[in-house]
Amino acid sequence: MAMITADPKDVPQVASFAFTPENLEKVKGFVANYPPGRQASAVISVLDLAQRQQGWLPRVAMNEVARILDMAPIRVYEIATFYTMFQLKPKGKYLLQVCTTTPCWLRGSDAIMKACQHAADGETFSVQEVECLGGCVNAPVVQINDDFYEDLDEASLKKVLDAFKRGETPKPGPQVDRQTSAPEGGALTLKGE
């Protein structure tokens, strides 16, 4: 069984990590959300910021977060290893988080998963199986970085991925003709006055 560790052996060594000046300002903002002396409460926000800056969370970044928030490093590692959203290994530019929980599975997430795995090359795309993303009405769902792509099938997924490959950002949300989770093809009720 793979050991979940904050310092995996098979990741590239990152020599150092420092927040950019803009991000450092943001860190101050996060810390200011909490009463003085409770700066450690900002740890998830700050870790997320570090991950956005670096693309993933190398150990030096976690150490830096611990230093900034005046926490024992182990407390930061505990959090970083607890949440699956924190990436402890380098990822591709786009992280495909495929929901495989029952509603998505019934609506064909197996095929979506297969297609995503096929597309994953480690540089542009990485794939991760996740539990329910909460978009069951629009199953199957894939979360690509921060956005949901919904009502997918193999063809529409291919279109989305191709667009990402070309450097475009396809429109998030349902990939069929519907507005959010409204009926396909437009409203069916409440049409009159």
């Binding site: 793979a2 050991m3 979940i4 182990i74 607890f82």
Partner: peptide, 25 residues
């Protein structure tokens, strides 16, 4: 270690079945 000894070196990494007690490094 965190409360009495005052040296926060032990922690629990991972979650669920993967949770482990470790000194991290």
């Amino acid at each position: 270690s965190a409360e009495v000894a005052g040296v926060a070196e032990l922690g629990a990494t991972g979650r669920g079945e993967d949770m482990e007690i470790t000194t991290y490094l």
